[in-house]
Amino acid sequence: MTIIQFVLLGAALFSIGLYGVLTRKNAVLVLASVELMLAAVNVNLVAFDVYLGDASHAGQIMTLFLIALAAAEVGIGIAIVLLVFRNRRSANIDELDVMRY
């Protein structure tokens, strides 16, 4: 196995996630896309960890932290989406244009 196959997979996931963030209308799906981006980073980190043979397992540990952070972010994100939805009866982020100048 080579390292690049993992990292390229990570890069692909990251780019796909970015595409999703930029194109999805529904806020929940935007969140999902963000999860893709973070998952991509996780793939990288674990792969590098193994590749480097890191005794302190910094890559894996960071992955663990990122998973937790992603969970927290999703929680926050869903809360905000709910908030928006309550006021606007819609979770579509393309309708957010109150502040336009």
């Binding site: 963030v21 930029l22 982020i93 393309d94 957010l96």
Partner: peptide, 13 residues
Amino acid sequence: LTGRVQQYAAMSF
């Protein structure tokens, strides 16, 4: 085309 947030994000990226 008024998905402002995404325009922002697109610009940034």
